[in-house]
Design a protein around this nucleic acid. Structure first.
Length: 511
RNA sequence: GGUCCGUUCGUCUAGGGGUUAGGACGCAUCCCUUUCACGGAUGAAACACGGGUUCGAUUCCCGUACGGACUACCA
């Protein structure tokens, strides 16, 4: 029997959660569900300088929005807590000490000025990669170069120090990535990364390995930006004696800019006018607001579906998937290797698909909510009729109202181009006759009845209905295009129609 | 610069030693329709380049180019 799958999403609370992060979380979630395992969330807040208030709530809300809440998290702890690295601070030193004892790590006392000087010296000497490594460490202030008593004295006196990993000089480090296959790196291209910072906090590298091990993580699914440091992580598992339980790695392709190249960034959102964050976010320091998919009118199921397909596909030609269907279809093997450009058109298309699949009842709620903001009230019945005819042309729920304002408000002005082309004596005659007929009926105006009456009006004037339809539409809605006119007539009703015809007759100026 | 990763229509991608290289978004045309939209149909549109290996390569290998990530006491 194989071990229960446990995966984690491990964001840093340094600002709004980027869409790429949401995708990483989603893939982790899908994999966990598919394998009947657990999806955990761990907050990686070891850098106290970069902590941003509210970022953690933002992460939670984002995942909740698309329905992928973690099984274990700071706000829903399991047996492996705490789930914030800052709260796990006391746990890391033990492992750093073990590394020290085993000779795989050492104390370093260099100041940042000394480190800068070292890098400058190496750069000046045209060393290809100036780094703290097996060669340069012999010239720096650390427990490898300093006499033992001085090291002890420094530690005892509370001198600031860091603990660095001692990367072996000649070793081939390899890992079998689930999306990329074998990746090999020679240890001489690795540097002696800091494991414990002088403030007593671990760096990402140590904390990550320790926590993943302690939390029983079986698969690490994360962004490709981590691939270069994965060999370091492999080495840490080995030195900590956890090689046998080392998780499998899957490095996800990055999300790229829609135009040109480069990683998708906040600037792209501003430049192209579409969101790249799941929810609205106001920076607590600058006060700057960035738009979210949710507030921009994207439905969570559409956003989710869109996101899943950024770098993954099911291998067949289906494109519309619910979360459950995604779970069913998901596999890491079908994740692509290359970076993915972000195309907002596809996101809009998904939104349209999901919007149209919603019932008129649900859609009416969106409409009613928008109407309420403007203190307009219409009946549930009328709202449902309106959305029924509007939904085929809407991308966002707000379009239901924005594109259909004429359903409530009579036009005050009329599209001049349409008026110039279509408004003529024939139109005026037909409308006038139609108005008379309308005033004479008692029955409730249905689309079918409206159609008959308008046809009769045209026939009475000896005019082909098709010739004047657009003018009629103009008179009633103010514009030249829209949903089926007879449906609009039915929704508007007799009285409103008469009013609008009268107004149009008085106000449209024919050219 | 160095290390690592990648490269099929504009975009997301399927495929894989012999295919008319398939689908989706977007675009165009046509049909439906009183209009627009929806829907339907059709079309334009791709294997980065150069060498191998092979009877045959877009597919395998090697280079080149291009792109990306990383190169902090940030994650």
């Amino acid at each position: 029997m194989s071990k229960e799958v446990r995966v984690r999403f491990a964001p840093s609370p340094t600002g709004a959660l980027h869409i790429g992060g949401v995708r990483t979380a989603l893939y982790n979630y899908l994999f966990a569900r598919k394998k009947g395992g657990k999806f955990l969330l761990r907050i990686e807040d070891t850098d106290q300088n970069r902590f941003v208030p509210g970022a953690e709530d933002y992460i939670k809300s984002s995942l909740d929005w698309i329905g992928i809440a973690p099984d274990e998290s700071p706000w829903n702890p399991g047996d492996c807590g705490p789930y914030r690295q800052s709260e796990r601070k006391p746990m890391y030193m033990e492992y750093a000490r073990y590394l020290l004892e085993q000779g795989h790590a050492y104390y370093a006392f260099d100041t940042s000025e000394e480190l800068d000087a070292m890098r400058q010296r190496l750069t000046a000497a045209r060393v290809v990669s100036p780094q703290y490594n097996s060669i340069t460490r012999t010239q720096m202030k650390n427990s490898l170069t300093l006499p033992a008593d001085e090291v002890k004295a420094r530690l005892d006196s509370g001198d600031p120090y860091v603990i660095r990993i001692k990367i072996p000089r000649k070793e081939e480090v390899r890992l079998n990535d689930m999306v990329r296959g074998w990746v090999m790196v020679h240890s001489n291209s690795l540097d002696d990364k800091v494991l414990m910072k002088s403030d007593g906090m671990p760096t990402y590298h140590l904390a990550n390995i320790v926590d993943d091990h302690l939390m029983g993580i079986t698969h690490v699914i994360r962004g490709e930006e981590w691939l270069p440091s994965a060999p370091l992580h492999v080495l840490l598992y080995k030195y900590l004696g956890w090689e046998d339980s080392m998780p499998e790695f899957a490095h996800l392709p990055l999300l790229l800019k829609p135009d040109g190249n480069g990683k998708l960034s906040k600037r792209d959102a501003e430049k192209h006018g579409f969101p790249i964050f799941p929810l609205n976010w106001t920076d607590p320091i600058s006060g700057e607001l960035v738009d979210g998919f949710r507030e921009s009118g994207y439905l969570p199921e559409a956003f989710l579906n869109f996101l899943a397909f950024l770098g993954w596909n099911p291998g067949d030609q289906r494109e519309l998937f619910t979360l459950d269907e995604l779970v069913e279809a998901f596999s890491i093997e079908r994740i692509g290797k290359s970076g993915t450009k972000f195309d907002i058109n596809k996101a809009k298309w998904y939104n349209e698909q999901y919007l149209r699949n919603k019932s008129d009842k649900v859609l009416a709620e969106y409409l009613l909510a928008d109407l309420k903001k403007e203190n307009i009230s219409v009946s549930q019945e009328k709202a449902e009729k309106i959305v029924a005819v509007m939904k085929e042309r809407a991308t966002f729920p707000s379009d239901l109202w924005q594109e259909g304002r004429f359903m409530v408000f009579a036009p005050k002005k009329f599209d001049e181009q349409v008026a110039a082309k279509k408004w003529n004596q024939d139109a005026i005659k037909v409308l006038t006759t139609f108005r008379v007929k309308l005033a004479a009926i008692d029955a409730v105006l249905t689309a079918q009845l409206a159609r008959e009456m308008l046809g009769e009006a045209a026939a009475a004037e000896g005019i082909k209905l098709g010739k004047v339809m657009q003018a009629v539409r103009l008179a009633i809605t103010g514009v030249g295009a829209g949903p089926d006119l007879m449906q609009i007539f039915e929704i508007l009703g007799k009285e409103e129609l008469i009013k609008r015809i009268d107004f149009a007759l008085d106000n449209i100026v024919a050219s």
